[in-house]
Amino acid sequence: MSDLVFHMVLFTIAGTVLVMAPLLIGRLVRPNLPTDEKDAIYECGEPTIGSSFIQWDLRFYTIALLFIVFDVEVAFFFPWATLYGGTMQLADSQLDAPSRFDLTDKLLNQVPGTSAASGESIASGEAIQLGLLAFSDILVFFGVLLVGFAYVWKRGDLEWVRAAISTSGQRTIPDP
């Protein structure tokens, strides 16, 4: 863990230096002659109209909400996927003993070599049962997510062009 933190800090510093060094070297050789025209915001050569720090129609608002739901679910999929992958490999009836010990240790989160020392590993029959449990879990979990996705699709929230939908009367479900 400290190894990761150490690398993270070091990579951040290195990245900062990577950007800063050319800019600092550039300071010695580049001109600095600002004029009003140069410092103006580019708006096709016309004088700028108003500020750009304005209230903004976040068109992707519902998409962002959808993203949060999906992304949280995917984050839960990752640990599940490691377990399911492990059980499916263990369910292989032709798997040799050393790989079976390795996979058992990984699945049960043991120190490598524990199951080889004790001689106990997960048999393919047990793995199949565990796999079926994990399988039904993910079907329910993913099913709920897909129902939500279908609802959002039906409601028309996935459309980028909203106006056309509200005028053509496709939106049958009223806003909550």
Binding site: F11, P31, K38, I41
Partner: peptide, 28 residues
């Protein structure tokens, strides 16, 4: 490197300068 480093008058200067750092550090 020899080009002038422009920052518009109406821009949010600190954020404007930080943005390239965020992009490079994240991808690095």
């Amino acid at each position: 490197v020899q080009k002038e480093d422009l920052c518009p008058k109406d821009a949010d200067k600190p954020l404007f300068r930080i943005a390239p750092y965020v992009v490079v550090i994240a991808s690095f």
